[in-house]
């Protein structure tokens, strides 16, 4: 395990299964408070499954997931978020039966210290403008902002963000980058699954590279240039 300050997330020997298929083969990593860590890897390497196993969305899992000092591996899914964790899924998960504002207000507040609705609207003025619109009527970029914005209200200090730049126009990707670095400045701890390597490079402290459901390498962001060739080979870029 990497030396970190106060450890907010510690994953040890995490295995996960979709039915018969074994998708994670003993994932080990940790994240310190205030760190931004990325999970890199090719499609199907297990990055999304890692996030889903942490938050409890893959029921068949074993090993250890310690969030804020609490073991979460045997908890039912609805008891994991209250440990202080917010999840932004790859498919965004905007509820079509709810308006934008209802989507925003949906995740229950878990701890004090989350952002207020005003702060969120100040950060994402588009969402304020379209707050009465059906959530899924928003543009892809707006839906992505909504998916991120709604977990900032809850007081969660550890954010799991899955592919927040996928399929977005460059200008929106830039906005997301600004928002994420601002969240980091505010002291949020972030695990970012990212396909866009250049995006991740500008934000992260450390990178974990996954292959076939295992972590094969950990790279500090400032050692990235030295490892570029190997990384390109692992990611197939």
């Amino acid at each position: 395990m990497h030396e970190v300050g106060k450890e907010l997330l510690r994953v040890v020997d995490l295995h996960a299964y979709y039915g018969e298929s074994h998708v994670l083969h003993g994932i080990d990593f940790n994240v310190g408070e205030g760190e931004l860590v990325t999970l890199l890897g090719r499609n199907g390497s297990g990055r999304t499954s890692t996030l889903k196993s942490i938050i409890g969305l893959i029921p068949k899992r074993s090993g250890s997931v310690i969030i804020n000092g609490h073991e979460a591996i045997n908890l039912p899914p609805y008891k994991i978020a209250p440990l202080g964790i917010g999840y932004c899924p790859e498919e965004r998960g905007i509820f079509p039966g709810l308006t934008t504002e209802e989507n925003l207000l949906l995740p229950p507040v878990l701890h004090s210290g989350g952002m207020t609705l005003e702060e969120i609207y100040a950060m994402f003025p588009n969402l304020k403008e379209r707050r009465a619109a059906q959530g899924t009527r928003l543009s892809g970029g707006e839906q992505q902002m909504l998916a991120l914005a709604r977990i900032l209200r809850t007081g969660a200090r550890l954010l799991l963000l899955d592919e927040v730049t996928e399929g977005l126009a460059p200008v929106i990707v830039e906005t997301m980058g600004r928002v994420i670095s601002m969240l980091k400045e505010r002291g949020y701890t972030i695990v970012l699954v990212e396909q866009n390597f250049h995006f991740a490079k500008g934000l992260a402290d450390r990178h974990y590279v996954l292959e076939h459901g295992r972590i094969v390498k950990m790279i500090l962001n400032n050692e990235l240039e030295a490892n570029l060739d190997e990384l390109h080979e692992l990611l197939g870029v």
Binding site: L57, P77, Y87, L98, L106, P107
Partner: peptide
Amino acid sequence: AYLRAATENPELLQAFGV
């Protein structure tokens, strides 16, 4: 809103702590 959300995507709603 919880009920509508649970009808549409119960797994994600649970991941929010409901």
